[in-house]
Structure formats: C-alpha cells, structure tokens
Nucleic acid binder design. Structure first.
Length: 878
DNA sequence: GTCTTCACG
DNA sequence: ACGTACGTGAAGACT
C-alpha cells in the first residue's frame, strides 16, 4: 500500500469560481483580492483535509492551443476576463511562489491538459490523486485512484463534492470517459464547443448510457429515438466527432514534470507572510508560526533605565528637529516611547526617580523646541501635553486619513506599510490581548518592539506624509482644519454631556410597560409565542402562518423591514403592533438601556468622536453614538429631555439650515438656484414653485414634499430608480421630475455631469477646501458598482464641503470660547448642528459666537443661515 | 463574525 | 438585464 498523495489544482478555474462566488473585496491599496482569497480558502481547506505531500497548480496560457487549430472558433465568443479578475492572476502566482507551491503552465496547452497528464503519471507512479477544479469537464479524469474535487461556495462556506469513477457513474449514469461523449453531444457554451442540435442533457445521457459512445450510437443510428435526435445525429455526426476531440483532455502532454519538486514544504514562509499582510488576509495570519521577521530598525530599540541615562536621552532629544511620540497608558501613564532619529528610538518607563510628571515635563520641553512633533493618535496624547507652537503638532494618522479616507485603519503598522514600505507586526501580532503592563512583564522584548515601532513610525512617516499633503493640495486643510480640530474634539469629549439618570430610568420603565402589553397582543394575534425580534421567526409568522402577501426578500428569507410592513399595515392588525413594538424596543435597548451604560461617575456621558472614519470627511460618534439620538418621532424625541445642562447653565443649539443644498447652489453656480436660496426661507417650497411652475403661495403640500425628495435625490447623486423608491412612484415619473428639475436649474446638471467626468479622469473627487475622496468604483466593469461610483462623485463634494464647513466652525467657536475664558463649552456636533452648554451669564455671548462663527465659516455664493434655540434640555433647545 | 433592522444627518 | 438612493453606529439573532 502506497500512501503518497498529490493535489493538482486547476488554477484558472478555481480563481474564476472564487471571483464570481465571493463578494467584491479589496485590500488597502485598492487591489481586488476576492479571487485570491477564495482560491486560498479552497487550497487550505483541501490541504487540511487531504494531508497530501505533493501539490501543483496549473494555469492556462493566453497562446492558442491545438484546439484552436482544430476549430478556429474554439472559445470564440468567450468574454474577456473582467479587469478586477485579470489583475488577480499575477498576484495569485506571486502568492503561490512565496509559498513554494509549484506552478505549471505551457504554451499550447490548457491547464486541463497539464492536469490530465500529471494525474495519469501520478497514478502510474502509485499516488493517490486529488484534482481540484470548478469545471465538471475534468470528471473524465476520475478513476478509482484519481478523485475529482469540485468546490462550491454556499452561503460563504466552501463545500467540496468528491468524485471517484464510481461516483461519476452514480451521478451521471455514465463512466468518466463517457463524460466526453456527453459533452460532444450536448456542446458547451462557455467553450463554444458545438453540440448536436436538439440533443440536450437528458437525451445525451440516455444515448451514451445505452450505446457507450458516439461512434456506436451512430452505428445504430436507426434505433435512436426520438426522431429529432436521430436526424440531428445523422446530419451532425462529423461535428460531434470534432467536438469530442475538443472536449478530450490530453493525458500525454510533453512536459518536464518532476514529482520531487511538487513536494510540499513550508508554505508559511516569511515572504508569504509579507504577501498575506499586503493583501490584508487577516483570517489566514494565524497559520503562520514563523517568528515575525525582524526589521533592521528593531536593532535600535532600547529601553532606557536609570535616571542619568534618561536625563541624557532627553538632553539629546532637545537638540532634535523632529520627533515621534507614543504615550503608553495602563490606567495611568505607564511610560513613553520617543523617536528622534533613525537610531534614536527608546522607551522610558515611569518608575523610581523617573516619575510620570518628570516624563511629561521633559516631553513638553521637547515639544516646545522641535519643529515637528508627530503622534499617531494625537487626541489620546492631549491629556498629557499642552498645545505647542502653532503648527508643531502633527498627527500621522489624520494625515494618512486625508490622503486616503477609504482605509479602515490607520494604525502604526498600516502607516508603516503604506508610507515606509515596512511590513511590521501589529500590536495584536506581538502582544495578543495582553495589556501593556502584562506584556512588559511577560514579553518585554515584544513590548519594547511594539511601543518603539509606534513612536518610530510617527517620527519616520511624518515627513513623507507632509510632503504628500503638499503635493495633493491638502496642507492647508490639514493645518488649519484637521489639526486644530483635534483639540476641539478632545475638549468636547472631556466636557461630555450631562444626563439625568433617574429620568432616563423612568423613561425606560415606561417603555417596558408598553413592550409587555404589545408582546401579549402580538402573541394573541399570531396565535403563538415567538421571538418578535427575530426577522426569521417573524417572517414565518407573517408570511406563512398568517399568509400575508410577501413583497421583498432578503438573501436569507423574507424582508420584514419597516417599509415592507407599512405596506401591509392594513392587511392584518398584527402589523401595526409589530411596527410599534419594533420602535419601542429600539428606544429601550439602544437608547434607554444603551445610554445608561455610558453614564460616568460625574453624571455625564463622555462619548468618542472619531476623526478618521468616514469617506466624506464627517466625524463619527461612538460609545455611545450621540449623533443618532431620536428626534423624528415624538416618543423618541422625548429622550432628549434627559440631556440636561448642569446647574446655572442652559443648552444652546445651533444648526445650519439646508447646508448641503446651499453648498450645491454654490458649487453649481446656477444663477436661478443662487437667487432662490438667497431670499427664500423655505427651500423645498421655492424648489416646488420653480420646478412645477406654480406661484409660491399656491404650492401644495404634495408638491413641496415631492420637491423635497428631489432635492434629497440631487444631493445623494440622482438616479430615477432612487427617486422612485423615495417617492413610491414609477421610474418613469421619477425621471420626469428629474428632467424638470434639470431644466429649471441647468447649472446643477452641468455641475453633476462634470463632477462625474472629472472623477473618471482623475480617479478622485475634491471639496472646495481640497479634501479628497478616491472613487475606485468608477473603473469597475460591474454596472452596480460603477453607478455607485457616479453617485459618490456627485455626493461627496457636497457632503464633504458641508463637513469641512462645520469643522471650521467648531474650531473657531471653541477657540473664541477659550479666548474669552468662558465657562461655556461645546459638547456635541451632529453633522450640521452644534450644541453648547452655556453658562447663564454667557448666553448672549455664546449665541453671538455661534452665529458669527458658523455663518462665517465659509464664503459661499449663498448665505449660510443658522437656526438657534435655547432651553433647559436638548429637547427644549431644538 | 455576518446579517438585518433602525436611529440620525 | 443587472439592482441602488449619500454618510454613519448599535443591538439582537443566528451561524
């Protein structure tokens, strides 16, 4: 018994399968990776199952093969590979090379033929053979030693169908070699192999099962039934024979193939580690046991101990021009890493005579002398330092965000990869889930590497980032908006917002009462108890048990989203109850209970505002999200009553009126729009008046709401489909509205067209303040993706400019408040709204500051109008 | 971890 | 024919 085992993979076929079977996926460079990812998933799954000792991957070549010579039109109608897949082929080969997986390809042969040949030779040499392909043609190679494995992706999971010769017979009623006969009779559209007209799968199987081959069938052609098939076979016999040759996989290719070279070695090499890292294949990283490759720079990482040595270090740092810093916290300050030269990278721990205060004091002195002090998360460092000279502080993460806001992370290892071409391990890679303190004790070397890398990357990347900001015209945005904003956001987070805990509890309790009532009524109406929160169970109740008409479906079942249920509200009394239940449980879980968990000792919620998340330049809010507190429905809106100012303060809330439409008026420079917005109070009403040619005071509520939807549509990147959804009308009608709008405001149409055109040319869009967003989707061959890119190109300059404007306002409002040494403070930003907790004695000043700084944040072709209210809670101030 | 739903601008 | 309105974050169910 010989237990040698070899796996042969049909490279192109598996890449294709993976590409079409998996959702689009890109790495941080914008490279498409779904096919490579899928290929590797299948590869690892097969290797895990097989315990094979040999492996080879075969690829097609672009050169014509003997089949083309035989039949000029072979694969003739085949479509060009989409660009997104094409670019992955060389990447795949590189990855395989890095894992020392042998790749075989030869001009004049397809991968099938190479695999056929290798499989035959391997079997002769006593191997167990596994052939992995997505293509059923390869079933002809199956024997009792050669297994054909066909992977299928079902719901994100890969399952493999296995076929030995007997399995082929069972599944297809023919032997493996007869698979060729079947294909010759049926033809193959994807390879453009002609079949015998009128013979489909059923007839072909019957004929071959009975006669064994095309030749034998032709010899007994008189007996073939039905008549149509008989005549067709007679007329097309020659062609069928040629098709058979085309469909036959060669098993005697002239190739140099040495089984020794196919032996599987260590797949998880250093080079493979780099490749996987570059492709962002985090799922596979755990397979690497190799010590993470050491980088040259690690040799210069030092932990400095002893007071004199630390003094020496800081003295030397005072001479530096630029430096990078990383404060290391563990409840309190644990130490600091500092880098001020390619060989001066150290960690200083707070212990003994080297106290926290001492470290902070020394670092502050360095900040006051260097030209550039760089951090990766400056906001986190502001607890320890005070503002240095204007323009000294530099946040490398924010700089990288401006250069490409589409990344999902700006950690030190991401910046190192992108800007220093340095592939270094993440904190997770080095320390796992250990805290800094634990890591310092248990893995001192890894800890030192980790924190020194942080400071080093901040130091080393800053110059490159600054240069790139200049090249892309974003230096001013960075210097005058984003960097000062770090302080404003820090102040806002530190201030927090006061919440009335008791009132919040009462609100939650009241909701709970109603939830229980509704539960009872719903179970009664349904006739059984079930989990109303489970869309799956709810769908079964509504659409199967109660037999309500089901409109939309999701991937996994019936859709029970609110817009679907609203259409069913009159069909059954259970539906309105479910809608109310949904609304109230949302309020209870996310808001009443959710917010309560975030109230600190001081009775306030200190949420986080993130500056490097959104694609458009907005800030986002987490832990908790304070930017989605209910307002649209009264019941939800009531929760704003628990957001209260402290004693002797009031809430002052100011929001921009229709800022995005005003930005649009400015950008489009449409004369009529500018005029309309300059003197109109109600923008949607005047839009309706002009678009529907109705005098302003005769505009009906319906006309106004239609105009409002069109205005939304324009801002979102108009499409007739989208508008038809928004208005529940036909696409045709929606298209007519859009045309009418564009006729009324031709400047808007011109602007939107140019935005898309420009983005297609340059690959990105910009705001009036220079903020960029790349739009890689515009290059996609997929219609859906490309259309999305077009809408993005229309929307981002608008949403982005509005984000820029309120950021400028925040910086200036915060500055004014601090300059005048007011007790009042900025506590929230909600995209077009600022909330200030103002001292009673300062209300007039605060109102004046908000008004002047917000409306003065940008000089547009239309005025920026502000609505402002004052009250004893956020609720009262809106 | 992914999907669905729903809260906001 | 394809199948979408733009930008977010959190909770609960399910795998």
């Amino acid at each position: 018994m010989n237990d040698k085992k070899i796996v042969l993979i049909d490279g192109n076929s598996i890449l294709n399968r993976a590409f079409y079977g998996l959702p689009d996926l890109t790495n941080s460079e914008g490279l498409h990776t779904n096919a490579v990812f899928g290929f590797l998933s299948i590869l690892f799954k097969v290797l895990d199952e097989e315990h094979a000792d040999h492996l080879t991957v075969a690829f097609d070549r672009k050169e014509p093969t003997f089949r083309h010579e035989m039949f000029g039109d072979y694969k003739g109608t085949r479509k060009e590979m989409p660009e997104e897949l094409k670019e992955q082929v060389p990447v795949m080969k590189e990855v395989l090379k890095s894992m020392n997986v042998p790749v075989i390809e030869k001009a004049g042969y397809e991968a099938d033929d190479l695999i056929g040949t290798m499989a035959k030779r391997a079997e002769e040499e006593g191997y167990q053979v596994s052939v992995v392909s997505g293509d059923r043609d390869l079933l002809q190679l199956a024997t009792d030693k050669v297994k054909i494995r066909i992977p299928k992706t079902k719901k994100g999971r890969t399952e493999v169908e296995d076929y030995y010769a007997k399995d082929v017979l069972e599944a297809y009623q023919v032997s493996p070699v007869q698979i060729i006969e079947l294909k010759a009779l049926m033809g193959d559209q994807s390879d453009n192999i002609p079949g015998v007209p009128g013979i489909g799968e059923k007839t072909a199987t019957r004929i071959i099962a009975e006669y064994g081959s095309i030749e034998n069938a032709f010899g007994n052609v008189a007996d073939i039934k039905p008549n149509k098939a008989r005549e067709s076979l007679q007329n097309h016999y020659d062609m069928a024979q040629m098709s058979k040759k085309l469909a036959t996989i060669k098993t005697d290719c002239e190739i140099d193939y040495d089984f020794q070279e196919a032996e599987i070695g260590n797949l998880f090499t250093e080079e493979a580690y780099r490749q996987f890292k570059r492709l962002d294949f985090k799922n596979f990283m755990s397979r690497f046991e190799v010590e993470i490759p050491a980088n040259r720079v690690e040799g210069y990482f030092h932990k400095i101990t002893g007071f004199n040595e630390v003094e020496e270090l800081f003295a030397k740092a005072l001479e530096a021009e630029t430096a990078g810093f990383q404060f290391v916290e563990q409840g309190e300050l644990f130490g600091a890493a500092i880098a001020f030269g390619d060989k001066d990278i150290c960690f200083v721990q707070a212990q003994g005579f080297v106290t926290k205060e001492y470290i902070i004091d020394k670092i502050q002195k360095i900040l006051d002398t260097v030209k550039r002090a760089s951090f990766i998360n400056l906001k986190e460092a502001l607890i320890y330092i005070s503002p240095a000279n204007e323009g000294t502080l530099f946040d490398a993460g924010i700089a990288a965000y401006l250069l490409n806001p589409l990344k999902n992370s700006y950690e030190y290892e991401d910046l190192a990869k992108e800007y220093l071409s340095l592939l270094i391990p993440s904190r997770q890679d080095m320390l796992g889930k250990l805290s800094y303190e634990k890591a310092e004790e248990e893995k001192p070397e890894a800890f030192l590497n980790c924190v020194c890398y942080m400071a080093y990357v901040a130091y080393a990347a800053a110059g490159i980032l600054e240069e790139k900001l200049k090249e892309t015209g974003m230096e001013s945005l960075f210097r005058t908006v984003e960097m000062p904003l770090v302080q404003a956001i820090y102040d806002m987070e530190t201030a927090g917002i006061r919440v009335d805990k008791e009132q919040l509890k009462e609100y939650g309790d009241a909701l709970q009462v109603r939830i229980e009532e509704l539960e009872k009524e719903i179970y009664e109406a349904a006739g059984e108890q079930f989990n109303i929160n489970s869309p799956k169970q709810l769908g079964e109740i509504l659409f199967e048990r109660l037999k309500l008409p089901h409109a939309k479906k999701t991937k996994t079942g019936y859709s029970t989203a609110a817009d679907v249920l609203e259409k069913l509200a009159s069909e059954h009394s259970i539906v309105p109850m479910i809608l109310e239940y949904r609304q109230i449980t949302k309020l209870k879980s996310t808001y009443a209970d959710g917010l309560a968990n975030y109230i600190s000792e001081d009775g306030r919620i200190h949420g986080k505002f993130n500056q490097t998340i959104t694609a458009t330049g907005r800030i986002s809010s987490t832990e908790p999200n304070l930017q989605n507190i209910p307002i649209k429905m009264e019941l939800g809106r009531l929760i704003r009553k628990v957001f209260i100012p402290e004693q002797d303060y009031v809430m002052v809330d100011a929001d921009y009126s229709q800022i995005e439409l005003r930005v649009l008026a400015h950008l489009s420079n449409d004369e009529r729009l500018i005029k309309a917005y300059s003197d109109a109070k109600d923008i949607h009403r005047i839009t309706a008046s002009q678009v529907f040619h109705t005098p302003l005071d005769e505009v009906t509520p319906l006309q106004r709401s239609n105009a409002k939807a069109v205005n939304f549509g324009i801002v979102y990147g108009i499409s007739s489909f989208g508008l038809s959804q928004g208005l529940s009308i036909s696409r045709k009608e929606a298209g007519e509205y859009i045309n009418q709008y564009f006729e009324t405001y031709p400047g808007v149409k011109k602007f939107l067209d140019e935005a898309v055109e420009n983005a297609k040319e340059t690959g990105y869009v910009t705001t009036i303040f220079g903020r960029r967003r790349p739009v890689p989707e515009l290059k996609s061959s997929n219609f859906v993706q490309r259309s999305f890119g077009e809408r993005v190109a229309m929307n981002s300059p608008i949403q982005g400019a509005a984000a820029d404007i309120i950021k400028i306002a925040m910086v200036n409002v915060n500055k004014k408040i601090k300059e005048r040494k007011l007790k009042s403070r900025l506590i929230l930003q909600v995209h077009d709204e600022l909330l200030v907790e103002a001292h009673k004695d300062e209300v007039d000043q605060v109102r004046e500051i908000l008004l002047s700084e917000m409306s003065g944040a940008a000089d547009l072709a239309v005025p920026l109008e502000i609505d402002m209210h004052t009250g004893d809670s956020w609720y009262e101030a809106k």
